[in-house]
Every structure is written in structure tokens, then in C-alpha cells.
Amino acid sequence: MAGAPVPGAALAEFAARAFTSLKVPEGDARAVAELMVEADRLGYDTHGLFRLRQYVNRLRDGGCNPAANPHVLRETVATALIDGDNGLGQLAMAQACDLAIIKARQAGIGWVGVRGGNHAGPAALYVRPQARAGMIGICAAVGSANHVAPYGGTDLLLGTNPIAFAAPGGADPFVLDMATTVAAMGKIKTLAQKGEPMPEGWMVGRDGKPLTDPNRKDEGFLLPIGGPKGYGLAMVIGLLAGVLNGAAFGSDVVDFTKDTESPTNTGQFVAAIDIAAFGDLGDFTATANRVFAEMRASTPLPGYPAVRVPGDGREAARTQRVADGIALHPALRAELDRIAQDLGIAAL
């Protein structure tokens, strides 16, 4: 059960204090903290303040560079490759998102790869700006730990490898942000933190039998969506976000939770497609909104709720959390208090 809501500004200030206590420059600390809180405002609670402990541990133990200087390694009119300098992942990804939009305005499309990165929160953060700019956004990443076996195998060689898309819409932009597994590992970790079981079908043990205790997650592996199709999609993302960028993929991936001392060389990419390069933005939006309305008007199956379009309700939920604050589960609140004690900083 969630506790009393906490203002987003207070959460951002707390996270920034944690980062600056670990020698992250104040500007970078505030930028990352704000993106983490934005994830919580949008309802991506497995990728917001919940991740602070992992980031703190890696900064503390030397696995993440507090004074990173993400920079462009190579560039063309439509593409770029950024080295994240092993810093907090949000820094390189925010830069990649901004640069992709700039390039799309010039060339119709912008594609920016990242290597030397780290976990950067939900991919949705790096596609929503494109939708606001009248563009289509795409983002994908190699997961920050291998929790998935190749289809039919038992060796952990793949991550959840998330992918996100966004496009302009009505009150809510179309935003699809998904892992290539049935469930993201972050959801399983939050269930463990809350002491709740996970449904069958999310994970299996190496004997092929279902796992439902989130505390036993290390005894098995996550299942890909659609069996071999999800496996294939995760491989494609690994090639585009990992191999293409000179980033980790397969057995080179470092588990950023268990190993807090080694650079992860996480690979990601952000793309922007300028709709105006293909036609009129107003026509695109009108047609998309008509199709979205058709989807929502589809008669639900018995026992099913009304049909939704990916992204529906996010803006209203965000507006409410901006006004009322963000509710924290008592287990997360307790973890934030422990972080404050460990770092010798003021608690929330």
C-alpha cells in the first residue's frame, strides 16, 4: 500500500543530494534526478526513484563515472555516435535525444547511437520529446543485465532489451514502451520489494517449470514475448543498440546490479523521424487520431475493459502527480531512508 504522496520537487532534490554527495556535478545531478522523477510522474515506477539504490551503489563502488563527459565520437548529417563516458545513463541519452531531433529537422531523420552508457530509466523518456516536436520517436537499449536465454536454450545471454515508439496524437501522444520479455525485471524487483508474488508465465526455472517467487529470480530466466519472435526481436535490438555502437551484447553484458565496480558499456539508440519530410503533419495527426478513435470504439470482449491505445491516460496521470505528488510504497520509502543514512545526507 502506497504512503502519502511526496512532491516531485522534493524527490528530485533528494536524488540530486544523493548524487552530489558522490561527486556528481550539481547540474548533472539535477538533470538526472529530474528525469528519474519524470519517470515516476508518468507511471514508470520501476524506472524512477526505485533505481536510485542501483545508481548510488555503482557511483560509490567505481562502476559509474560521476564526472562523465558524454561526447560525440563521429557524426554525419543524419547520424551520430555518442560515448557516454561511463556516466549516469540519462546524461548521454538526453543528449542523444536532443541531437536526433536536430538532425531530423535537417535531414528528415536523425539516428544517434550511444556506447559507454549506463541504465537510463524508461525508454519512453527519449521518445516523448519527438512526439511533442511533431516527429516519430524510436528508442531501444541492450538490457543492463542478462536475464533471458536464447529461445530453447538455458544460458543467460540476452537482456530485456526494451524498445519504445512515440507519435503525435490528441491529449495523449501514442507511446509504446515495452520490454521484449513478458515482464520487465524491474517489475519483478518491485514485487520482491513489496513481498508480492509474480504471475505464472513471467519466468521459468532451468527445469522449465514456472517461477512465481520474485526472490528466486536468479534461479531461472525471463520469458520472451511471443516465444521465438520475442527472442528474435531482442537479437535485432542487440545488433542495433549494441554491436552497431561498439557496445556490449551477449556474454559481454555486465550485470549492473551484481557488479557495481565494472563499466557496463551499455548500448542504446534514439531516432527521430520528421513527419513533415513525408507529408503534412496535420494530415498525419488527423488520420492517426481517427484510427485511434476507431480502436477505442471497438466493442470489448466479454469481461474486458474498454479498448485503449498505447499511451492513453499518461498525461492525465502525470498532471495529477504533478499537482498531488508521487505516492511511494513503504518499502521504497524505507530504502530511500537507508540511502540517506548510508550517504550521510538529509532524508526526504
Rank of each mutant, 00 (worst) to 15 (best):
N146C: 13
Y151M: 10
G153W: 03
L343P: 10
P300D: 12
A120Q: 10
G303H: 03
A67R: 14
M203S: 02
L22N: 10
D45S: 08
A78Q: 11
E261R: 15
A179S: 10
S298M: 14
S262W: 00
I82G: 12
G201H: 06
T79L: 05
N69G: 02
T287C: 14
L239E: 10
P70L: 03
G84Y: 01
G311D: 07
G134T: 02
L191Q: 13
A316V: 14
G267N: 12
A10E: 15
L233S: 00
A297R: 05
P70T: 00
G238W: 01
D259M: 10
I136Q: 01
M198F: 02
L240S: 02
A68N: 07
R132C: 01
T257N: 12
V77L: 12
D218H: 09
V291F: 10
H147L: 11
T287V: 13
G84R: 04
A247I: 14
P173F: 08
L125D: 09
P7D: 04
L125N: 13
T266S: 02
P5C: 11
I225N: 04
L73F: 09
T299L: 13
A104W: 02
G238S: 04
R290V: 00
V322P: 07
A167Y: 03
T287A: 15
G134R: 03
R321W: 11
D85K: 05
L233C: 01
N57G: 14
Q106V: 05
E261T: 15
I163N: 06
A94R: 13
I101G: 01
R30E: 07
V142Q: 13
L35D: 13
P224G: 01
L336N: 09
G84A: 00
A276E: 15
A306M: 08
N65A: 00
I345Q: 07
A288P: 12
G208W: 02
E34G: 08
A133P: 12
S144Q: 07
D255P: 09
M185T: 04
G250W: 01
G230F: 01
G153S: 09
A179Y: 03
A92S: 13
N245D: 06
V6S: 00
L125E: 07
A140E: 08
A33M: 07
F19P: 11
D337N: 11
E75I: 02
G220A: 09
V254Y: 08
L52A: 06
D85M: 03
Y126M: 05
V322K: 05
G110D: 09
R30Y: 01
A192T: 03
D213L: 05
C97L: 02
L35K: 12
A306T: 07
G110S: 07
A141R: 07
Q95G: 00
V142H: 09
A272P: 11
S262M: 05
G110N: 04
Y231R: 10
A140H: 11
R58G: 11
F256I: 15
L336W: 01
M1H: 14
I275Q: 09
C97F: 06
C97I: 00
V236K: 04
G230C: 07
R105W: 09
R206C: 03
T285S: 13
G153E: 05
I102G: 03
D312Q: 08
N57Y: 04
F249N: 00
G48D: 11
G201Y: 06
D177F: 09
A166C: 12
R132K: 14
R296K: 12
